[in-house]
Amino acid sequence: MAVVFPPEFAALEPFADWAVPTERARYAKRVASTMDELDAFYNVAFPLLKSGKPYLESVEMDSISEPDKRLLWLFCALVTVAFPVEAWRQPKVPDTGASTIDAIVEPAI
């Protein structure tokens, strides 16, 4: 079995499908998810952010490994789901109807 995340973050393995490289894909996954799915991901990932932040700060971005890159993407997904979990209690932005947000430029990694 391939290593998806660094060993100290093995608890995140069930949520490996959240480790997607683009903001657009993370947003699409959030909107397509149920609140139960968002809650499950958030409840496991959020407590690991405390150790994940200093871990990722110690990683050289020029030579980042695939497991570290996926961990970074997963924590970016955590940011994408935090507000829906903590405030809105729904995957979509409240009162926005059919409107969408499309990122036309992705941040560089």
Rank of each mutant, 00 (worst) to 15 (best):
T22V: 11
A40I: 05
A45E: 02
V79D: 09
V3K: 14
V3I: 10
A32Q: 13
A103K: 07
E23Y: 08
A2L: 11
P84Y: 03
A98Q: 11
D36E: 14
D95V: 13
A28S: 07
A16M: 06
R24C: 01
A103M: 12
D36V: 15
Y27T: 14
E60S: 15
A25Q: 09
V20P: 04
K92Y: 07
S65A: 13
P91V: 04
F9L: 01
P107S: 12
P84T: 12
Q90N: 03
D17A: 14
V20F: 02
A103C: 13
D36Q: 14
F41Y: 13
E60R: 15
F41G: 09
S33L: 05
L78H: 02
S58D: 05
V93I: 15
A87H: 07
C76G: 02
G97F: 03
F83T: 14
P21R: 01
S99W: 10
F83V: 11
L12Q: 02
K50C: 04
Q90R: 13
D95L: 13
R24K: 05
P67S: 13
S58K: 11
A108K: 10
V81E: 03
A87T: 15
I104R: 11
V44H: 06
P91S: 00
V44S: 00
L71H: 01
W73N: 13
T100S: 10
L12N: 02
Y55E: 05
P54Y: 03
D95T: 14
D39K: 15
F75N: 04
D36G: 08
D62G: 02
G97S: 07
W18I: 00
S51V: 11
A108T: 15
E57C: 03
I109R: 14
L12P: 04
L48T: 05
S99Y: 05
P84K: 08
D17P: 03
A103V: 08
D17R: 14
A16V: 07
P107G: 10
R89Y: 02
A11M: 11
K53I: 12
L71T: 04
I64G: 06
L38F: 07
R26E: 01
P94I: 15
A16I: 05
S58C: 09
S51F: 02
K92F: 02
